[in-house]
Design a protein around this nucleic acid. Structure first.
Lengths: 223, 223
DNA sequence: GGTTGAAAGTTTGTATACAAACTGTTAGCA
DNA sequence: TGCTAACAGTTTGTATACAAACTTTCAACC
């Protein structure tokens, strides 16, 4: 795991909460390296929007509810576009990838509901794989960096997520609808399917943000 | 001018042509600084997509015609969205900004055509100001970083641009149509206006890329 | 002649020292 | 008591030395 990934992980898992100040020396000591590689990682994180730098120093970025809404809107736009492009440009290999990812997804969800062995982390991971497969099928590599930037933000609240059976089944259905539209090369249906799928996720996240707002806000007082 | 801006400028102006290798020491000597700040600037440029790093070292990115097409498509999508959002969310101050930028634009074009005093650089700059005003009016600050990333790429070919009177007048008309749609809060018309405006620009750039393909390709042999 | 391998030469990656800039605290003064 | 100025402490910015990794070159061998 690179230094960049390690810091990112700490932010996404809530170990470094929003507004926490990240001094170079602290990170250098923690990751047992010098300040130079830390700086590079921090620059990268900033360009991804996970941190903000003030006149002096860097802090973990705080996202308001409005931020989340707007970022999700962009994700909807971008992934919707990716889906519509995938519908026209997908190859046989792309279809195979998407099918495989979706089969894994179905199995993971089944397993989660029936035995509880599969973790939520695992399900999120496979879901991510499917989305990546769609982006890949769009044959536009430039979309990728834009989407990673908007996808990563809601993950900050990942630790708060809570899924019920119905949500997961609903998500699986959405994937299937989307896959079908892409198979049939129906651009507009693919776009709409992706759009609604993500928009639904947006609503869930925002709903859950209301619940966690109190335990989340005290971070303001950090350092 | 920061180090980052200076290197960016050199790339956009063709001083550092595509595929040219950028060694840290070379840049450090040229900009009379040490390697440390150079590295930071290079990291930033890479995240913006202007350079690529291989196993060893960094090169100025080469964009194929396909790249330009795909990046322009993304720009169309993003700025189209920004325009539609601007139509709903713009304040009076936003409208004022857009009007001012557009008046400057009209004056600059007139001046360019009649006296030739205004430079193309200047016109591009003011055009840029208008587009920024629209993005600003969308009230979604997150769009901004995405758009700068897709806007900067075609600028690499800025030095090759050639504008005739008709193109400039056409562009001005497009701005006026867009502004009117935003004033009247017509989201869809604003989106379409922006979409067509940029798409028209895309065609021009691609057409001109055909012409310059030969003098542009020899860069392959650089270092 | 072509291929492989070792050595020399570049260039980057990391650590660290030092300078510069900012922050906060305290003492002096009104 | 409240304000200001200076000083101490902390943290970042820059330069540079050294180690590690990659490239190129040249020679020896097949």
């Amino acid at each position: 795991m690179t230094i960049y990934e390690s810091i990112k992980r700490s932010i996404l898992h809530g170990e470094f909460p929003p507004k926490m100040r990240l001094t170079e020396e602290f990170l250098a000591k923690k990751l047992e390296t010098s300040r130079t590689p830390i700086r590079e990682a921090l620059k990268q994180l900033e360009s991804e929007g996970l941190t903000v730098s003030m006149k002096r120093g860097v802090r973990v970025r705080h996202f308001t509810k409005k931020d989340i809404q707007q970022i999700y809107d962009l994700r909807t736009l971008l992934e919707g576009y990716a889906a519509s492009q995938a519908a026209t440009h997908r190859t046989e290999a792309d279809l195979e990838n998407m099918r495989l990812a979706n089969d894994s997804y179905e199995k993971a969800i089944d397993n989660y509901i029936k035995t509880g062995e599969t973790t939520i982390e695992n399900i999120l991971d496979i879901n991510h794989q499917f989305h990546n497969a769609v982006i890949n099928a769009s044959q536009n590599p430039h979309i990728y960096s834009h989407i990673t930037k908007v996808v990563v933000v809601p993950l900050i609240f990942r630790s708060f997520y809570w899924f019920n059976e119905e949500q997961l089944r609903h998500s699986l259905e959405a994937h299937k609808t989307l896959l079908k539209a892409i198979e049939e090369q129906d651009m507009e249906r693919a776009r709409v399917a992706m759009h609604e799928h993500i928009y639904h996720g947006r609503d869930e996240v925002l709903k859950q943000m209301d619940t966690i707002d109190e335990q989340y806000s005290p971070a303001k007082e950090l350092q």
